[in-house]
Design a protein around this nucleic acid. Sequence first.
RNA 1: UGGCGCGAGAGUG
Length: 350
Amino acid sequence: TATYGCLIYLYSKIGRMTNAMKVSWEMQQYGMKHDTKSYSMIVDGYARIGDAESAIEVFKEMLEMGLRADIVAYNIIVNAVCKCGQMKRAMELLNHIIKEGLKPTVATYTTLIDGFVKAGNLKMAMDTLCGMKAAGLRPKAATFNALLNGLAHVSQMKAALSVMDQMVAAGITPNYRSYTILIEGYARIGEAGESFKIFNKMLNEGLKIDLITYSSLLKACCKAGRMRSAYAVLDAITAAGFEKNKIVYSTILDGWARRGDILEAQNVMEEMESKGIVPDIVCYTSFINACCKAGDMQRAEQVMVELNRKNIVANINTYTTLIRGFVRAGLAAKALGCYQEIKERGLKQD
RNA sequence: UGGCGCGAGAGUG
């Protein structure tokens, strides 16, 4: 069962649920039964691809087979429910877990805190942290990181720093993700200097630095229009042995786009394609933004044609970018045309 | 090492 479990684990982790279910079926053909762990992995796999209904279905099947859900299985379900923003349901699950005589773990509470953060309810996130302490559990770095992330995403860097102080006061050492969150937070408000300070601190303390840390630092440069520094970060990425991925290219593309530099943006597009990275709608929207900022609306329209040819679907952000461009260029009729297209295609904000 | 929780990309404001 453990051997099949490994396979199910691997497929579930990457969201290949068809394959995972095939292994599950085969395993049962050979007379082996699922246990709580193998079921949990499948439940988690469905949750990862956003299919909460299937996740819950498999969870129920597990109970029907006479297996008892343990705390990890419940945590997976709580996470699935949180990811859909159903926080009320998530809290009901917490009560249910306790009623079943199971003890929620740090992961349970961290999942809930992250859920509240993503739902934009920082107050409940804080309350949940208190609730967890009241239950006698010690928060871990991940717990505080969820909160830090919430504050960073609403640009409350003062509050984020104070949470980090609380964290240290509680005897929890911030990890490289904690710092990465702060780097990203300062990046979004254009304070590249602060981002670099934190990055240097990470270097001094010998903390792990991964591609996400670098790309957050890159974002800091690009949002602040410091493209020279941005290219220095790109060099550092390569020097550290990382391959630049689509997000890295997309970030640099955004940097040139907000400066209206079509030529440089095009260079980036060509470079990524030469590396076998296929630009997606986010990249193209940035490129269109570059055209808009440069006032070259003809070029922007050409890109839209190219999107069509490549079967890449423009989304609401793409159209909003275009509309802004047309309005700035004084082409009101074109802007209205885009607006019509949005309506016809039934596009809405996400 | 068979299962769970936290971090990076586009438009408007």
